[in-house]
């Protein structure tokens, strides 16, 4: 199986678009999801700042957003992309639905990481006179760093797989190539190449996340 220069160029562009979409959406998803995850943990009844009503409402909103299938979310949200960045097709337009879908997911991933912390450590920090902010910045986040990184790899790979679906609605990237050539034009070769590229990307992200997590973890002797 050989590809001409144009095909190779297309694949290169696809890789770049995927990278760009995933990177930007992950970044924005964390900008939204990380604080929400922290709020979910801290406002819980056994958290450092119990606010059961806030916790309940936020949890429900997150669950609602998470239960909308991504493909449907895409159709609902793309008009918003048109309003915000002037277009509903192409990779930049996809960043908005990706962020909206991934934000709540990231919040849950962050939440589950932060819940791993030993309550005694938080207790100790309180006994030393730590404020809520200090507990978040100096205890929760640093102590959960390894778990947050593993969660990060999980979130980014999920965003990657979402981004591949964006091909159905005129988004770019490797996923779009697989869909356009494999699904619409029956070019199995190019489809498989795209799929392999996606698999490799997932592997790389996963590996980076795991390595960073393990490297920084001082619990390992």
């Amino acid at each position: 199986m050989t590809f001409d220069a144009a095909t190779i160029q297309m694949l290169k562009t696809g890789i770049w678009e995927t990278f760009y979409m995933v990177f930007l959406s992950s970044l924005l998803a964390y900008v939204i999801g990380l604080p929400l995850g922290i709020v979910l943990v801290c406002t819980d009844t056994d958290g450092i700042h119990p606010m059961p009503a806030v916790q309940k409402i936020l949890g429900t909103v997150i669950n609602l957003l998470r239960s909308v299938p991504f493909l449907i979310l895409l159709f609902i949200v793309l008009p918003l992309s048109k309003m915000v960045i002037g277009t509903r097709i192409g990779s930049p337009a996809m960043v908005i639905p990706l962020t909206i879908a991934a934000g709540p997911y990231v919040a849950r991933v962050v939440e589950s990481s932060l819940r791993e912390i030993d309550g005694g450590v938080v207790e100790a920090a309180k006994s030393m006179g730590a404020s809520d902010w200090q507990i978040i910045w100096k205890v929760l986040l640093p102590e959960c760093r390894p778990s947050l990184l593993v969660g990060g790899a999980l979130a980014v790979t999920t965003i990657l797989s979402y981004s591949a679906m964006a091909g159905f609605v005129g988004g770019g990237g490797v996923g779009a190539i697989a869909i356009n050539y494999g699904y619409y034009r029956y070019e199995a070769g190019l489809m498989w190449v795209s799929v392999v590229l996606l698999v490799v990307m997932v592997q790389i992200i996963q590996e980076i996340g795991m390595r960073m997590s393990r490297k920084g973890d001082k619990r390992i002797r």
Binding site: D118, G120, V121, E123, A124, K126, S127, M128, G129, A130, S131, V139, P142, E143, R145, P146, G216, D217, K218, R219
Partner: peptide, 22 residues
């Protein structure tokens, strides 16, 4: 109250050290 707590150290059965700090 936080300042007062700084005048009262506390130690625990499970030590409760920060695992990621030296």
């Amino acid at each position: 109250l936080r300042r007062t707590r700084q005048s009262m150290g506390m130690i625990f059965q499970q030590f409760n050290l920060l695992a990621q700090r030296s």
